[in-house]
Design a protein around this nucleic acid. Structure first.
Length: 291
DNA sequence: GAGGCGTGGAC
DNA sequence: TGTCCAAGCCT
């Protein structure tokens, strides 16, 4: 059996409705695709687009980024958020140069061993860059499968083995078809089967969706709490790092002290940034992006 | 396995 | 306006 009950409809929908994203074009390299996948972790496409363009122009190959200090990656990360990903991508570049002769590895296990590359990203790069057959299970796919197959509005908060089994059971046999299927279901979740106000009228599998057939029952269970941000260490970290990114060189401690008036929290955040390798404390008491 | 980790747009 | 959400990973 080469297809699941949805594959024909979803693949046809994708052909007609897929966005023209640069990392999906045939000429996109595995390195460019890896950069896109790391940038897209928890970050909307519209914010990734300009950053991705800047990165692939400046560092077209892993060796180009590996030759630079990590701080340049952090600076180029700009305000994408979760700047540890910039560090991860830089460490990926160096690992790829050292362990894989400068080329992004094509095996799932080699990809998984790269810093900041987890099960989703390894499967995505193996599938999208190398045409391999892997189950793609990101937040979009989890939501589509929760609705279409399980008949619930939202998937569980943390990914379950049952979800992995389900995604694997739906994977078409032919690798090229499986790769197309993976990106197509993601796109369906991103454009139609959205978290809020899904556009069911535009859905190619509306007549087979368990959630719709059940009358679209609302989410049942504890509220899915969103993370607060204002006043947290994360906000302080963001402000501290912004000062360092925007400065041409090392920054005096006083400039960092100015971003937050609660000194205990500010020092804790700065220490954490240093511990994470995002900030270098220099001998003279100033601070800089990592060298 | 629950919580930490940025940022900004949409409603 | 505040809440929710966005192609997760790591500890």
């Amino acid at each position: 059996m080469n297809e699941n009950p949805y594959s024909t409809a979803v693949l046809a929908w994708y052909e007609a409705n897929a966005r023209d994203l640069p990392w999906r074009r045939p000429e996109a390299t595995p390195w460019e695709i890896l950069i896109s996948e790391i940038m897209l972790q928890q970050t909307p496409v519209v914010r990734v687009l300009p950053a991705w363009e800047a990165w692939v122009e400046r560092w077209p190959r892993p060796a180009d980024l590996a030759a630079e200090p990590a701080g340049e990656a952090v600076r180029m990360w700009n305000r994408l958020g979760y700047p540890r990903r910039a560090l991860n991508l830089h460490a990926c570049a160096r690992a790829i140069v050292e362990r894989h002769d400068g080329r992004v590895p094509d095996s799932h296990s080699d990809l998984l061993a790269l810093p900041g590359v987890g099960p989703y990203t390894a499967a995505a790069v193996a599938s999208f860059a190398f045409g391999q057959r892997h189950a793609i299970l990101d937040t979009n796919v989890r939501r589509v499968l929760a609705r279409a197959e399980t008949g619930i509005e939202y998937p569980p908060k943390t990914q379950t083995k049952a979800e992995v089994r389900l995604a694997e059971s739906l994977l078409p046999d032919a690798p090229a078809v499986a790769a197309r299927w993976g990106v197509a279901v993601m796109e369906l979740g991103a454009l139609v089967c959205t978290a809020r106000s899904p556009k069911c009228a535009d859905c190619p599998i509306l007549d087979r969706c368990s959630w719709v057939l059940a009358g679209r029952p609302p989410h049942d269970g504890p509220p899915r709490r969103g993370q607060t941000y204002a006043g947290t260490d994360r906000q302080v970290r963001g402000r501290l790092l912004a000062v360092l990114r925007e400065a041409p060189g090392p920054v005096a401690k006083e400039a960092l002290d100015a971003v937050w008036d609660k000194s205990v929290q500010r020092e804790r955040a700065l220490d954490a940034l240093v511990a994470d390798g995002l900030v270098d404390p220099l001998e003279d008491g100033t601070y800089a992006l990592p060298g």
